[in-house]
Design a protein around this nucleic acid. Sequence first.
RNA 1: GCAUCGCUAGCUCAAUGGUAGAGCAGAAGACUCUUAAUCUUUUGGUUCCCGGUUCGAGCCCGGGGCGGUGCACCA
Length: 482
Amino acid sequence: MESISELLAVRRQKLEALSVAGESPFGGRFDTDGGVAELRAGFVEGAGVRAAGRITAHRDMGKSHFLDISDFSGRMQIFLHAKEVGPERYAIFKHLDIGDWIGLEGECFTTKSGEPTLRVKSFKVLSKSLRPLPEKWHGVQDAETKYRQRYLDLIANPDSREKFRQRIAIVRAIRRFLEDRGFLEVETPMMQAIAGGAAAQPFQTHHNALGMDLFLRIAPELYLKRLLVGGFPKVFELNRNFRNEGISRRHNPEFTMLEAYWAFADFEKMAELVEEMVCHLAETICGGLRIEHKDADGQVTKTIDLTRPWKRARYADLIEEAVPGWGAMTSEERRARCGELGLDVSHYGEDFEVAQHVFEKLVEEKSINPLYVTHCPKELVPLAKQNVDDDTVVDVYELVINGQEISPGYSELNDPDVQRARLGAQSGGETQKLDEDFLNALEYGMPPAGGIGIGIDRLVMMLTGAESIRDVILFPHMRRRE
RNA sequence: GCAUCGCUAGCUCAAUGGUAGAGCAGAAGACUCUUAAUCUUUUGGUUCCCGGUUCGAGCCCGGGGCGGUGCACCA
């Protein structure tokens, strides 16, 4: 007999025994006085309490039993004695396992060792667990199991629970922060006839009734700008984007993006907004402006200091700083210099692509503390206004933290003719891809505006010390098994 | 796509090419304040899959699967 079958068989036998004894193994409604961590925190000696949770530990002392019950909020100890519940209920209790959900009613008391504990007077089986839980001390270590069976990770790994609790708090706080400043949250199409607003491979689908192909959006940008045209002064959308590209530590095919637009503002005003917001999140949710990232042994590997004001620097100056003399070099000299620095730029055709590679490797990846990069080359950003003093650069910032691009911010381009030319140049003459309705909307007049995008997953990684995007996405995409 | 590392009991991990082991969980027993409870006994294996080398493969070789990491890709 295989081991797992044996473990399952034993639990099935207990399931049967519960039914025979007249105890429903899958319970029903059970009203409690709160989550277990809340009850433990609000502990009053002698008070009667109703609680429910999953049994996560069992310490057996003859006829005295100490158990931990847990829910998403935390754990609490309960004490169950044969004398307290009577022989019939005690017999039922003997059929319980670690993993089962139970509801109980009891009285608060403190043990000799000082642990707030619930003395069980009565209990009810809420759900029998038919499979054994992961190991109590090490939890689930296997990355594949954590991602494929997130529920096991959430049951067994408190660190993981905490990261998701923080993610939820961050998303909620962002919404509140923006709403408090008059931004309206909107919902725009996720299925689009033309996947615009970024340059990425889209997922394709098909609408049968309309007989047309549609794309999952790669960005909401062009629709949010239509709303600026329509008169919305401050809008944001915080939801999923889809990009049909590689999966990595930093990429999931569907990811969460915040985009916000503010009429009559510019990229610098948006930078102020983002700086204020991220610091607010760090202080209220992550315990302060110094964010520590730790390795598996708990050793601090890096500390991100979010103290304001954040550094601001021009794109060209940062490259010059990384590679002295860059600005005065010819195209050939730059490529040669890249070779000396160990950077492979052979597959880049354009000069700005070579520079961008240098920027990514020598500036972005090395920037741990916040850095606003401004005056970026216009080729990189087709949807932003050109700078009035230097038409080779655009009025944008790129916010880099933790070696990753966290947020771009623009002074949005609102000249329809310039916009058409820039998008046309980007699509390489494939006029089919131009979103004519968007350009048409611009011709009605879009107010000058500041706009931002923030990759929420990467922001949460930065704020919670997660090294992989999969650690902040509940159900990351995996290759199908079998 | 390329490179590299990994896959052993339900979970966490061991195992010079020579009888696959431990801890936890499970089962049986002892114990009325334990908290990684303790103590005694004990069940549990398609070593990811297929093939090869060998007297003999968890281990070596080839192919495949899944996963981690890096590179490539990615405004």
